[in-house]
Design a protein around this nucleic acid. Structure first.
Length: 418
DNA sequence: CGTCCACAGGAATGACGGGCGG
DNA sequence: CCGCCCGTCATTCCTGTGGACG
Protein backbone atom coordinates (compact mmCIF):
# COMPACT_ATOMS: atom_id res chain seq x y z
CA UNK A 1 0.00 0.00 0.00
CA UNK A 2 2.73 2.38 1.01
CA UNK A 3 4.52 1.65 -2.18
CA UNK A 4 1.48 2.38 -4.31
CA UNK A 5 1.00 5.72 -2.66
CA UNK A 6 4.59 6.64 -3.41
CA UNK A 7 4.13 5.57 -6.98
CA UNK A 8 1.01 7.67 -7.43
CA UNK A 9 2.77 10.51 -5.74
CA UNK A 10 5.51 10.45 -8.29
CA UNK A 11 2.95 10.31 -11.10
CA UNK A 12 1.26 13.43 -9.78
CA UNK A 13 4.53 15.22 -9.15
CA UNK A 14 5.70 14.34 -12.58
CA UNK A 15 2.49 15.72 -14.00
CA UNK A 16 2.83 18.97 -12.12
CA UNK A 17 6.47 19.44 -13.02
CA UNK A 18 6.04 18.66 -16.68
CA UNK A 19 2.81 20.47 -17.23
CA UNK A 20 4.47 23.09 -19.32
CA UNK A 21 2.08 22.77 -22.27
CA UNK A 22 -1.24 23.82 -20.93
CA UNK A 23 -1.97 27.20 -19.56
CA UNK A 24 -5.73 26.58 -19.48
CA UNK A 25 -6.98 23.28 -20.75
CA UNK A 26 -10.65 24.20 -20.48
CA UNK A 27 -10.36 26.67 -23.33
CA UNK A 28 -10.22 23.73 -25.71
CA UNK A 29 -13.34 22.07 -24.37
CA UNK A 30 -16.35 22.54 -26.57
CA UNK A 31 -18.59 24.00 -23.90
CA UNK A 32 -16.19 26.90 -23.54
CA UNK A 33 -17.51 30.08 -25.07
CA UNK A 34 -14.78 32.45 -26.16
CA UNK A 35 -15.09 36.21 -26.09
CA UNK A 36 -14.83 36.35 -29.83
CA UNK A 37 -16.24 33.95 -32.37
CA UNK A 38 -14.24 34.31 -35.57
CA UNK A 39 -16.04 33.99 -38.90
CA UNK A 40 -19.46 34.15 -37.33
CA UNK A 41 -19.90 37.91 -37.31
CA UNK A 42 -22.76 37.77 -39.80
CA UNK A 43 -24.75 35.27 -37.81
CA UNK A 44 -24.15 37.13 -34.57
CA UNK A 45 -25.37 40.39 -36.09
CA UNK A 46 -28.35 38.70 -37.70
CA UNK A 47 -29.41 36.98 -34.48
CA UNK A 48 -28.83 40.16 -32.53
CA UNK A 49 -31.20 42.02 -34.80
CA UNK A 50 -33.87 39.38 -34.42
CA UNK A 51 -33.80 39.23 -30.63
CA UNK A 52 -33.37 42.98 -30.09
CA UNK A 53 -37.13 43.68 -29.76
CA UNK A 54 -37.05 41.79 -26.47
CA UNK A 55 -35.26 44.77 -24.99
CA UNK A 56 -38.41 46.77 -25.58
CA UNK A 57 -40.43 43.98 -23.99
CA UNK A 58 -41.81 42.98 -27.36
CA UNK A 59 -41.92 39.38 -28.38
CA UNK A 60 -39.28 38.50 -30.95
CA UNK A 61 -39.70 36.19 -33.91
CA UNK A 62 -39.23 32.51 -33.45
CA UNK A 63 -35.96 31.42 -34.97
CA UNK A 64 -34.88 28.26 -36.64
CA UNK A 65 -31.14 27.68 -36.74
CA UNK A 66 -29.57 24.91 -38.69
CA UNK A 67 -26.14 23.70 -39.56
CA UNK A 68 -23.99 20.64 -39.01
CA UNK A 69 -22.23 19.76 -35.78
CA UNK A 70 -19.34 21.97 -34.82
CA UNK A 71 -20.37 24.96 -36.92
CA UNK A 72 -20.77 27.18 -33.90
CA UNK A 73 -24.55 27.22 -33.59
CA UNK A 74 -24.69 26.64 -29.88
CA UNK A 75 -21.74 28.87 -29.08
CA UNK A 76 -23.11 31.77 -31.12
CA UNK A 77 -26.55 31.36 -29.60
CA UNK A 78 -25.27 31.32 -26.05
CA UNK A 79 -23.04 34.26 -26.78
CA UNK A 80 -25.83 36.38 -28.23
CA UNK A 81 -28.22 35.50 -25.44
CA UNK A 82 -25.77 36.24 -22.66
CA UNK A 83 -25.15 39.65 -24.20
CA UNK A 84 -28.87 40.18 -24.53
CA UNK A 85 -29.56 39.27 -20.93
CA UNK A 86 -26.77 41.56 -19.73
CA UNK A 87 -28.27 44.44 -21.65
CA UNK A 88 -31.71 43.60 -20.38
CA UNK A 89 -30.51 43.64 -16.80
CA UNK A 90 -28.87 47.00 -17.42
CA UNK A 91 -32.10 48.50 -18.75
CA UNK A 92 -34.29 46.72 -16.26
CA UNK A 93 -36.23 44.74 -18.83
CA UNK A 94 -37.42 41.34 -17.66
CA UNK A 95 -35.86 38.96 -20.17
CA UNK A 96 -34.83 35.44 -19.38
CA UNK A 97 -33.26 32.73 -21.49
CA UNK A 98 -33.85 29.03 -20.97
CA UNK A 99 -31.50 26.66 -22.68
CA UNK A 100 -32.47 23.02 -23.12
CA UNK A 101 -30.55 20.36 -24.93
CA UNK A 102 -33.33 18.18 -26.26
CA UNK A 103 -31.15 15.19 -26.98
CA UNK A 104 -29.87 15.13 -23.42
CA UNK A 105 -33.31 15.81 -22.00
CA UNK A 106 -34.70 13.02 -24.14
CA UNK A 107 -38.41 13.34 -23.51
CA UNK A 108 -41.06 16.06 -23.56
CA UNK A 109 -41.49 15.62 -19.87
CA UNK A 110 -37.88 16.43 -19.13
CA UNK A 111 -37.85 19.35 -21.55
CA UNK A 112 -40.79 20.92 -19.74
CA UNK A 113 -39.11 20.16 -16.44
CA UNK A 114 -36.04 22.05 -17.57
CA UNK A 115 -38.22 24.97 -18.63
CA UNK A 116 -39.85 24.99 -15.22
CA UNK A 117 -36.42 24.94 -13.57
CA UNK A 118 -35.47 28.05 -15.49
CA UNK A 119 -38.46 29.81 -13.93
CA UNK A 120 -37.53 28.44 -10.50
CA UNK A 121 -40.62 26.28 -10.39
CA UNK A 122 -39.90 22.98 -8.77
CA UNK A 123 -41.41 19.94 -10.40
CA UNK A 124 -40.73 16.32 -9.51
CA UNK A 125 -38.55 14.63 -12.09
CA UNK A 126 -41.19 12.00 -12.62
CA UNK A 127 -44.66 11.15 -11.48
CA UNK A 128 -46.72 13.90 -13.05
CA UNK A 129 -48.63 13.90 -16.28
CA UNK A 130 -46.84 15.75 -19.05
CA UNK A 131 -49.80 18.09 -19.44
CA UNK A 132 -49.63 18.95 -15.76
CA UNK A 133 -45.96 19.97 -16.01
CA UNK A 134 -46.80 22.11 -19.01
CA UNK A 135 -49.66 23.77 -17.14
CA UNK A 136 -47.40 24.57 -14.21
CA UNK A 137 -44.94 26.05 -16.63
CA UNK A 138 -47.63 28.24 -18.16
CA UNK A 139 -49.04 29.34 -14.83
CA UNK A 140 -45.60 30.09 -13.44
CA UNK A 141 -44.66 32.06 -16.50
CA UNK A 142 -47.85 34.08 -16.41
CA UNK A 143 -47.26 35.23 -12.84
CA UNK A 144 -43.64 36.23 -13.46
CA UNK A 145 -44.28 38.84 -16.15
CA UNK A 146 -41.31 38.30 -18.36
CA UNK A 147 -40.14 37.61 -21.88
CA UNK A 148 -38.85 34.09 -21.97
CA UNK A 149 -36.64 32.95 -24.75
CA UNK A 150 -36.53 29.21 -25.07
CA UNK A 151 -33.58 27.62 -26.82
CA UNK A 152 -34.21 24.06 -27.92
CA UNK A 153 -30.84 22.69 -28.93
CA UNK A 154 -30.56 19.48 -30.93
CA UNK A 155 -34.26 19.71 -31.49
CA UNK A 156 -34.20 17.27 -34.39
CA UNK A 157 -33.31 14.41 -32.06
CA UNK A 158 -36.39 14.93 -29.98
CA UNK A 159 -38.71 15.41 -32.91
CA UNK A 160 -37.41 12.27 -34.58
CA UNK A 161 -38.14 10.26 -31.48
CA UNK A 162 -41.27 11.98 -30.24
CA UNK A 163 -43.03 13.84 -32.98
CA UNK A 164 -44.42 17.34 -33.20
CA UNK A 165 -46.51 17.57 -30.05
CA UNK A 166 -44.03 19.48 -27.92
CA UNK A 167 -43.39 22.09 -30.55
CA UNK A 168 -47.04 22.44 -31.31
CA UNK A 169 -47.83 23.20 -27.69
CA UNK A 170 -44.92 25.59 -27.30
CA UNK A 171 -45.60 27.58 -30.43
CA UNK A 172 -49.17 28.14 -29.31
CA UNK A 173 -48.45 28.99 -25.72
CA UNK A 174 -48.47 32.74 -26.35
CA UNK A 175 -52.17 32.61 -27.07
CA UNK A 176 -52.80 31.56 -23.48
CA UNK A 177 -50.57 34.20 -21.93
CA UNK A 178 -51.34 37.84 -21.20
CA UNK A 179 -48.45 39.06 -19.07
CA UNK A 180 -45.55 37.10 -20.48
CA UNK A 181 -44.27 35.98 -23.85
CA UNK A 182 -42.35 33.04 -25.15
CA UNK A 183 -40.01 33.10 -28.11
CA UNK A 184 -38.53 29.92 -29.41
CA UNK A 185 -35.14 29.27 -30.92
CA UNK A 186 -34.88 25.82 -32.42
CA UNK A 187 -31.45 24.47 -33.28
CA UNK A 188 -31.02 21.49 -35.55
CA UNK A 189 -28.00 19.57 -36.79
CA UNK A 190 -30.01 17.79 -39.40
CA UNK A 191 -30.61 19.80 -42.52
CA UNK A 192 -33.55 17.66 -43.51
CA UNK A 193 -35.22 18.38 -40.20
CA UNK A 194 -37.80 20.67 -41.74
CA UNK A 195 -39.35 17.79 -43.64
CA UNK A 196 -40.24 16.12 -40.37
CA UNK A 197 -42.29 19.04 -39.13
CA UNK A 198 -45.96 19.61 -39.69
CA UNK A 199 -46.51 22.66 -41.88
CA UNK A 200 -48.24 24.70 -39.20
CA UNK A 201 -45.47 23.98 -36.69
CA UNK A 202 -42.82 24.74 -39.27
CA UNK A 203 -44.31 28.07 -40.22
CA UNK A 204 -44.66 29.05 -36.57
CA UNK A 205 -41.12 28.06 -35.76
CA UNK A 206 -39.23 29.43 -38.70
CA UNK A 207 -40.37 33.01 -38.76
CA UNK A 208 -36.66 33.63 -39.12
CA UNK A 209 -34.00 31.23 -40.29
CA UNK A 210 -30.29 31.35 -39.74
CA UNK A 211 -27.98 28.99 -41.52
CA UNK A 212 -24.52 27.99 -40.31
CA UNK A 213 -22.12 26.82 -42.97
CA UNK A 214 -19.24 24.49 -42.16
CA UNK A 215 -15.91 26.14 -41.52
CA UNK A 216 -13.20 25.72 -44.12
CA UNK A 217 -9.63 24.81 -43.21
CA UNK A 218 -8.34 28.35 -42.97
CA UNK A 219 -11.25 29.47 -40.80
CA UNK A 220 -10.63 26.51 -38.55
CA UNK A 221 -7.00 27.55 -38.27
CA UNK A 222 -8.03 30.98 -37.08
CA UNK A 223 -10.26 29.43 -34.46
CA UNK A 224 -7.56 27.06 -33.32
CA UNK A 225 -4.95 29.77 -33.01
CA UNK A 226 -7.29 31.98 -31.09
CA UNK A 227 -7.93 29.24 -28.56
CA UNK A 228 -4.38 27.95 -28.58
CA UNK A 229 -3.07 31.28 -27.39
CA UNK A 230 -5.17 30.97 -24.28
CA UNK A 231 -4.84 27.24 -23.83
CA UNK A 232 -1.14 26.66 -24.36
CA UNK A 233 2.01 28.26 -23.13
CA UNK A 234 4.04 30.24 -25.62
CA UNK A 235 6.05 28.42 -28.22
CA UNK A 236 5.00 24.86 -27.49
CA UNK A 237 2.78 24.50 -30.51
CA UNK A 238 4.12 23.79 -33.98
CA UNK A 239 2.35 25.60 -36.79
CA UNK A 240 2.15 22.38 -38.77
CA UNK A 241 0.25 20.71 -35.96
CA UNK A 242 -2.44 23.36 -36.06
CA UNK A 243 -2.69 23.17 -39.85
CA UNK A 244 -3.09 19.44 -39.63
CA UNK A 245 -5.84 19.65 -37.03
CA UNK A 246 -7.65 22.14 -39.23
CA UNK A 247 -7.16 20.06 -42.35
CA UNK A 248 -8.39 16.86 -40.75
CA UNK A 249 -11.45 18.55 -39.32
CA UNK A 250 -12.17 20.39 -42.55
CA UNK A 251 -12.16 17.11 -44.42
CA UNK A 252 -14.81 15.94 -42.01
CA UNK A 253 -17.53 18.50 -42.71
CA UNK A 254 -15.67 21.43 -41.16
CA UNK A 255 -16.32 20.50 -37.58
CA UNK A 256 -14.71 22.95 -35.17
CA UNK A 257 -15.46 20.71 -32.24
CA UNK A 258 -13.42 17.97 -33.81
CA UNK A 259 -10.57 20.35 -34.58
CA UNK A 260 -10.46 21.45 -30.95
CA UNK A 261 -10.60 17.89 -29.71
CA UNK A 262 -7.69 16.96 -31.93
CA UNK A 263 -5.65 19.83 -30.66
CA UNK A 264 -6.40 19.13 -27.02
CA UNK A 265 -5.68 15.42 -27.27
CA UNK A 266 -2.54 16.11 -29.29
CA UNK A 267 -1.40 18.28 -26.42
CA UNK A 268 -2.11 15.50 -23.96
CA UNK A 269 -0.28 12.97 -26.09
CA UNK A 270 2.75 15.21 -26.33
CA UNK A 271 2.62 15.86 -22.62
CA UNK A 272 2.55 12.19 -21.79
CA UNK A 273 5.48 11.52 -24.10
CA UNK A 274 7.53 14.26 -22.49
CA UNK A 275 7.91 15.96 -25.83
CA UNK A 276 9.12 19.52 -25.96
CA UNK A 277 6.66 20.72 -28.54
CA UNK A 278 3.37 19.59 -30.01
CA UNK A 279 3.99 18.35 -33.53
CA UNK A 280 2.10 16.73 -36.41
CA UNK A 281 2.81 13.23 -35.16
CA UNK A 282 0.98 13.96 -31.96
CA UNK A 283 -2.03 15.10 -33.92
CA UNK A 284 -2.08 11.90 -35.91
CA UNK A 285 -1.89 9.87 -32.77
CA UNK A 286 -4.65 11.99 -31.25
CA UNK A 287 -6.81 11.15 -34.22
CA UNK A 288 -6.38 7.43 -33.58
CA UNK A 289 -6.90 7.80 -29.89
CA UNK A 290 -10.12 9.75 -30.26
CA UNK A 291 -11.51 7.20 -32.65
CA UNK A 292 -10.58 4.32 -30.39
CA UNK A 293 -12.03 5.98 -27.34
CA UNK A 294 -15.19 6.73 -29.18
CA UNK A 295 -15.62 3.09 -30.14
CA UNK A 296 -14.78 1.69 -26.73
CA UNK A 297 -17.00 4.24 -25.09
CA UNK A 298 -19.95 3.47 -27.31
CA UNK A 299 -19.37 -0.23 -26.91
CA UNK A 300 -19.28 -0.36 -23.15
CA UNK A 301 -22.51 1.56 -22.95
CA UNK A 302 -24.43 -0.86 -25.11
CA UNK A 303 -26.94 -3.28 -23.69
CA UNK A 304 -26.16 -6.97 -23.83
CA UNK A 305 -28.37 -7.60 -26.83
CA UNK A 306 -26.99 -4.67 -28.78
CA UNK A 307 -23.53 -6.04 -28.13
CA UNK A 308 -24.61 -9.39 -29.49
CA UNK A 309 -26.03 -7.79 -32.59
CA UNK A 310 -22.86 -5.85 -33.21
CA UNK A 311 -20.77 -8.94 -32.53
CA UNK A 312 -22.87 -10.86 -35.04
CA UNK A 313 -21.97 -8.37 -37.74
CA UNK A 314 -18.36 -8.63 -36.67
CA UNK A 315 -18.42 -12.43 -36.93
CA UNK A 316 -20.07 -12.34 -40.32
CA UNK A 317 -17.28 -10.04 -41.44
CA UNK A 318 -14.79 -12.58 -40.14
CA UNK A 319 -16.45 -15.13 -42.42
CA UNK A 320 -15.97 -12.78 -45.36
CA UNK A 321 -19.58 -11.73 -45.43
CA UNK A 322 -18.93 -8.04 -45.16
CA UNK A 323 -22.38 -6.77 -45.87
CA UNK A 324 -24.81 -9.03 -44.14
CA UNK A 325 -28.57 -8.81 -44.33
CA UNK A 326 -31.01 -8.76 -41.45
CA UNK A 327 -31.82 -12.46 -41.72
CA UNK A 328 -28.16 -13.52 -41.53
CA UNK A 329 -27.60 -11.36 -38.51
CA UNK A 330 -30.63 -12.68 -36.73
CA UNK A 331 -29.44 -16.25 -37.29
CA UNK A 332 -26.00 -15.57 -35.84
CA UNK A 333 -27.49 -13.51 -33.05
CA UNK A 334 -29.81 -16.36 -32.08
CA UNK A 335 -26.92 -18.77 -31.79
CA UNK A 336 -24.95 -16.35 -29.66
CA UNK A 337 -27.86 -16.00 -27.26
CA UNK A 338 -28.24 -19.77 -27.02
CA UNK A 339 -24.55 -20.22 -26.32
CA UNK A 340 -24.59 -17.74 -23.46
CA UNK A 341 -28.00 -18.90 -22.31
CA UNK A 342 -30.10 -15.76 -22.58
CA UNK A 343 -33.47 -15.63 -24.26
CA UNK A 344 -33.58 -14.13 -27.73
CA UNK A 345 -35.40 -10.99 -28.73
CA UNK A 346 -37.74 -11.00 -31.71
CA UNK A 347 -36.52 -10.15 -35.17
CA UNK A 348 -38.54 -6.96 -35.07
CA UNK A 349 -36.66 -5.84 -32.01
CA UNK A 350 -33.28 -6.85 -33.41
CA UNK A 351 -34.09 -4.87 -36.53
CA UNK A 352 -34.75 -1.92 -34.24
CA UNK A 353 -31.43 -2.45 -32.49
CA UNK A 354 -29.67 -2.43 -35.84
CA UNK A 355 -31.27 0.93 -36.58
CA UNK A 356 -30.12 2.25 -33.22
CA UNK A 357 -26.57 1.05 -33.83
CA UNK A 358 -26.76 2.72 -37.21
CA UNK A 359 -27.70 6.05 -35.73
CA UNK A 360 -24.93 5.86 -33.12
CA UNK A 361 -22.55 5.29 -36.02
CA UNK A 362 -21.34 1.81 -35.17
CA UNK A 363 -23.12 0.15 -38.08
CA UNK A 364 -24.00 1.18 -41.60
CA UNK A 365 -27.37 -0.01 -42.75
CA UNK A 366 -29.12 0.64 -46.00
CA UNK A 367 -32.43 -0.68 -47.26
CA UNK A 368 -32.07 -2.59 -50.50
CA UNK A 369 -34.32 -4.69 -52.64
CA UNK A 370 -33.15 -7.95 -54.05
CA UNK A 371 -36.20 -8.35 -56.22
CA UNK A 372 -37.57 -11.83 -56.00
CA UNK A 373 -35.41 -12.42 -52.95
CA UNK A 374 -37.11 -9.77 -50.95
CA UNK A 375 -36.52 -6.40 -49.45
CA UNK A 376 -34.06 -6.16 -46.60
CA UNK A 377 -31.24 -4.15 -45.08
CA UNK A 378 -27.60 -4.41 -45.98
CA UNK A 379 -25.62 -4.02 -42.82
CA UNK A 380 -21.91 -3.55 -42.32
CA UNK A 381 -19.56 -2.32 -39.62
CA UNK A 382 -19.05 1.42 -39.67
CA UNK A 383 -15.86 1.25 -37.62
CA UNK A 384 -12.48 -0.41 -38.01
CA UNK A 385 -12.28 -3.98 -36.78
CA UNK A 386 -9.13 -3.74 -34.69
CA UNK A 387 -10.41 -1.72 -31.73
CA UNK A 388 -13.47 -3.96 -31.70
CA UNK A 389 -11.38 -7.10 -31.44
CA UNK A 390 -9.70 -5.77 -28.36
CA UNK A 391 -12.85 -4.42 -26.77
CA UNK A 392 -14.59 -7.75 -27.23
CA UNK A 393 -11.98 -9.84 -25.49
CA UNK A 394 -12.19 -7.45 -22.56
CA UNK A 395 -15.96 -7.58 -22.40
CA UNK A 396 -17.48 -9.63 -19.60
CA UNK A 397 -20.03 -11.43 -21.77
CA UNK A 398 -18.42 -11.46 -25.17
CA UNK A 399 -15.10 -12.59 -23.78
CA UNK A 400 -16.71 -16.00 -23.23
CA UNK A 401 -17.43 -16.23 -26.92
CA UNK A 402 -13.95 -15.75 -28.26
CA UNK A 403 -13.62 -19.36 -29.33
CA UNK A 404 -17.20 -19.85 -30.37
CA UNK A 405 -18.14 -19.94 -34.03
CA UNK A 406 -21.85 -20.17 -34.82
CA UNK A 407 -22.83 -23.18 -36.92
CA UNK A 408 -24.73 -21.16 -39.46
CA UNK A 409 -21.51 -19.33 -40.24
CA UNK A 410 -19.70 -22.57 -41.05
CA UNK A 411 -22.51 -23.68 -43.32
CA UNK A 412 -22.82 -20.33 -45.04
CA UNK A 413 -19.12 -19.81 -45.44
CA UNK A 414 -18.26 -20.84 -48.97
CA UNK A 415 -21.87 -21.20 -49.95
CA UNK A 416 -22.78 -17.56 -49.97
CA UNK A 417 -20.14 -15.52 -51.61
CA UNK A 418 -21.56 -12.21 -52.75
C1' DC B 1 -46.35 -7.46 -66.57
C1' DG B 2 -47.88 -9.50 -62.43
C1' DT B 3 -46.11 -12.11 -58.49
C1' DC B 4 -44.16 -12.69 -54.38
C1' DC B 5 -39.98 -12.64 -51.37
C1' DA B 6 -38.05 -10.99 -46.97
C1' DC B 7 -38.13 -8.07 -44.71
C1' DA B 8 -38.98 -2.54 -43.24
C1' DG B 9 -41.01 -0.06 -40.07
C1' DG B 10 -45.57 1.95 -37.91
C1' DA B 11 -49.11 1.21 -34.21
C1' DA B 12 -51.06 -0.80 -30.36
C1' DT B 13 -50.28 -3.04 -26.32
C1' DG B 14 -48.15 -4.84 -22.12
C1' DA B 15 -44.72 -5.68 -18.41
C1' DC B 16 -41.76 -3.39 -15.30
C1' DG B 17 -39.36 -0.40 -12.03
C1' DG B 18 -39.83 4.06 -10.18
C1' DG B 19 -41.93 8.11 -8.06
C1' DC B 20 -45.75 11.03 -6.90
C1' DG B 21 -49.77 12.97 -4.17
C1' DG B 22 -53.04 12.05 -0.98
C1' DC C 1 -50.03 2.37 1.81
C1' DC C 2 -52.77 2.84 -2.61
C1' DG C 3 -53.80 4.19 -7.11
C1' DC C 4 -51.95 6.55 -10.71
C1' DC C 5 -48.78 8.00 -14.17
C1' DC C 6 -44.18 8.09 -15.85
C1' DG C 7 -40.45 6.35 -19.34
C1' DT C 8 -38.32 2.24 -21.20
C1' DC C 9 -38.06 -1.98 -23.40
C1' DA C 10 -40.06 -5.55 -25.77
C1' DT C 11 -43.75 -8.19 -28.23
C1' DT C 12 -47.42 -8.81 -31.50
C1' DC C 13 -49.71 -7.66 -35.47
C1' DC C 14 -49.76 -5.25 -39.23
C1' DT C 15 -49.42 -2.97 -43.95
C1' DG C 16 -46.14 -1.57 -47.44
C1' DT C 17 -42.74 -2.27 -51.08
C1' DG C 18 -38.51 -2.54 -54.98
C1' DG C 19 -37.53 -5.26 -58.33
C1' DA C 20 -35.74 -10.16 -60.19
C1' DC C 21 -38.01 -13.91 -61.79
C1' DG C 22 -41.29 -16.55 -64.39
Amino acid sequence: MKKEVDMLDSVFEHFLKNNHFFRDRDVLRHDYIPKKLPHREDQIRHLGMIVAPLLKAERCSNIFIYGKTGTGKTAVMKYVLSQLVQKAVKFGVPVRAAYVNCRLAGTEYRVFTRLCDSLNIHVPFTGLAVGEVFDRFKRGLETQNLSLIVVLDELDELIKARGNVLLYQLTRVNGALCNSTVSIIGISNDLRFKEMLEPRVLSALSEEEVMFKPYNASELQDILWQRAELAFCNGVLLEGAVSLCAALAAAEHGDARRALDLLRVAGEVAERKNAKIIAEDHVREAEKRIERNRVIDALTNLTLHSKFVLYSVYLLGKANIYSAITGDIYEVYTELCKEIGVSTLTQRRVSGLVSELDSIGLLNSRVISRGRYGRTKKISLAIPRSPLTKAYTDDAHLGQLTNFTPKCLIIKFGKTKH
